[in-house]
């Protein structure tokens, strides 16, 4: 099944880096750029929803526009030996021409119309 390639340009493209210490909230920024000539709806998903606040966690990006997402890692006891397995996914779909409401858009979306990109989370301590 040929999946649609992600239309958005993600920066960073693969890894979200969080620099400690992790005794307070640590924020990583993810920029989504829409190089196409169509409006693109996005929503952010993660394997660890209770560990992060994501703002905005969904929205619509106009043609040629970009949006900056703040990914806020909540404080936790960092274990340097434990490699983070958290992942993020940016799921996107071209906005329909008729302004249907956002929820039905995602509910009725056909798998072939969905695009997604996955990012890993990388934790690093400030170099001593």
């Amino acid at each position: 099944m040929s999946k649609l390639d992600q239309v958005l340009i993600l920066d960073p493209p693969c890894d979200l880096r969080f620099k400690g210490p992790f005794t307070d909230v640590v924020t990583a920024n993810l920029k989504l750029k829409n190089p196409s000539d169509r409006r693109v709806c996005f929503k952010v998903k993660t394997t660890a929803p209770r560990r992060y606040c994501v703002r905005p966690n969904s929205g619509v990006i106009d043609p040629g526009a970009a949006v900056n997402i703040s990914v806020m890692l909540q404080p936790f006891d960092y274990d340097p030996n434990e490699k983070s397995k958290h992942k993020f996914m940016v799921q996107t779909i071209f906005a329909p021409s008729n302004n249907s409401d956002n929820d039905s858009l995602w509910k009725d979306a056909k798998p072939d119309d969905l695009m997604d990109s996955k990012l890993r989370c990388v934790f690093e301590m400030p170099s001593e």
Binding site: K43, T47, C53, P56, M89
Partner: peptide
């Protein structure tokens, strides 16, 4: 390859 990860909608409030 199928990834074993299970994704949930991210939340905007802690």
């Amino acid at each position: 390859a199928l990834s074993e990860d299970e994704f949930h909608d991210a939340v905007s409030e802690s």
